Computed example of a mutant assay.
Amino acid sequence: MTFDVRTADLDALNSATKYPSIQTYHQLGERGSLTDAFTEFRGPVIGTEKVDGSNSRVICLPDGSWLLGSREELLCAKGDLIGNPAQGIVAALREFADALPPVAEAIRVYYLELYGGKITAASKQYTGTRTVGYRLFDMVELRDFQSVLAMPVAAISAWREAGGQPFAPEPELAAAADRSGLELTPRLFTVDGSELPGEIGAMREFLAEHMPMTRCGLDEGGGGHPEGIVLRTPDRSVIAKARFEDYDRTLRRRQPAAR
Rank of each mutant, 00 (worst) to 15 (best):
E205Y: 12
G163W: 10
Q165W: 15
R232L: 15
G198T: 12
L196V: 09
L251I: 14
G222T: 10
I200H: 00
I239S: 15
G224A: 09
C216Y: 05
G201W: 06
L231Y: 12
R187L: 10
E209T: 13
E245N: 13
R160I: 12
G217S: 09
R243M: 10
M213W: 07
T233A: 12
E195S: 15
Y247E: 06
T233D: 03
P212E: 01
D178M: 15
A158N: 11
E220L: 11
G221I: 11
S157G: 12
R179C: 14
A162M: 07
P171I: 05
K241F: 02
E170C: 14
R160Q: 03
R236V: 07
R253S: 09
E161F: 06
G193H: 04
F244T: 07
T233G: 08
R187F: 12
A242W: 01
G201T: 05
R252M: 14
R215K: 07
G164W: 00
T250A: 10
R232I: 12
V230T: 03
T185I: 00
E172H: 04
W159P: 01
G223I: 06
A158E: 13
R253F: 06
D219A: 04
M203W: 09
Y247K: 01
D235V: 13
G217L: 09
E245W: 12
L184R: 13
A158M: 12
S180W: 10
G221H: 09
E195H: 15
A158Q: 13
S180H: 08
G223T: 04
F206D: 04
T214S: 08
A202S: 10
P171F: 03
R236I: 10
P171E: 02
R253A: 07
V238C: 06
P186C: 03
R236F: 15
Q165Y: 09
